[in-house]
């Protein structure tokens, strides 16, 4: 009887360790805001959710592919990843000597990122959720109108190879979340809801023939060049694409 009880306690303890080894998350209080590209009503409502404090790291992703071999470089199928998926790794489970364990994972596709988050009982953030958290600076939840907020982001765009830095090396924002700007671009669950593209399809600008209802989409703040760049990148991506400066983090609803 006692032994069983002890065993049970031990197992519960083990379980809690299991849960704790997931990355740190913080709660984001929902609210309303006007994103760069919104809906017809402009205001977007965000419900409460939890977000990873840091982007997913190389180490975390190595652990993931060890447990989920179908996402290893040689085994991931072409429907889900392009040829540069995890390109810099030495092999299926080993990082390159120059890659740090606690740098953000990059060269990752949307499918891979989505699968990673789902495996953790989480999901990718929506564009609107990501932008909601990312419009904060150190002290304000919405710093988009501040000159130095935009300057910081724009100066990052000019810096080369920031993906080699480690997580936590940029600032902690109002929500206690690190590295939304300054390290890597991040995948979002509905990146393909951005109906502007810079790619070579027939849609130059907003082609009302290719996109039904495209007249409804207008930038609310074209001055917000930093954000415009993010939307432009999202619009140019396909889900199997991987890029050296594109990583991800996960969120969950409760």
């Amino acid at each position: 009887m006692k032994i069983i009880l002890r065993l049970a306690i031990f197992l519960i303890f083990l379980n809690s360790i299991n849960l704790n080894c997931q990355s740190k998350i913080v709660k984001i209080k929902g609210g309303e805001y006007i994103p760069l590209y919104g809906r017809d009503s402009l205001m977007v409502t965000i419900d409460d959710f939890w977000i990873d404090v840091y982007p997913v790291t190389n180490k975390e992703y190595v652990d993931y592919v060890k447990k989920n071999p179908n996402w290893q470089r040689s085994k991931a199928i072409k429907l889900f990843v392009d040829e540069s998926y995890l390109r810099d790794w030495q092999n299926d489970t080993l990082l390159n000597a120059n890659q740090k364990l606690n740098s953000p994972i990059t060269n990752i596709s949307w499918f891979a990122a989505k699968s990673y988050c789902e495996n953790q009982g989480k999901r990718l953030p929506t564009v609107d959720e990501w932008e909601y958290v990312a419009m904060a600076n150190k002290t304000m939840p919405d710093a988009r109108s501040l000159k130095n907020y935009n300057q910081f982001i724009l100066s990052w765009y000019e810096k080369p190879k920031t993906f080699n830095q480690t997580i936590g090396s940029t600032f902690k924002n109002y929500w206690q979340v690190y590295d939304l700007h300054g390290l890597v671009w991040e995948w979002t669950s509905d990146f393909n809801s951005v109906l502007i593209t810079g790619e070579s399809r027939k849609d130059v600008g907003k082609d009302s023939n290719l996109f039904c209802g495209s007249a409804a989409i207008n930038a609310t703040d074209l001055m917000n060049y930093a954000a415009f760049m993010r939307y432009a990148i999202r619009g140019s991506l396909k889900a199997k694409y991987t890029m050296k400066n594109l990583g991800f983090r996960c969120v969950k609803d409760n």
């Binding site: 809906r39 017809d40 499918f111 809801s193 109906l195 989409i217 396909k238 889900a239």
Partner: peptide, 27 residues
């Protein structure tokens, strides 16, 4: 919602909900 998003990504179809009964989408 998630399956449809995934499938749209396979087709490289883009779409966005504009209002409760209205979407923009690639043709």
């Amino acid at each position: 919602e998630s399956n449809v998003r995934e499938f749209a990504n396979v087709l490289a179809v883009k779409y966005k909900q504009i209002s409760p009964l209205d979407f923009s989408h690639s043709n």
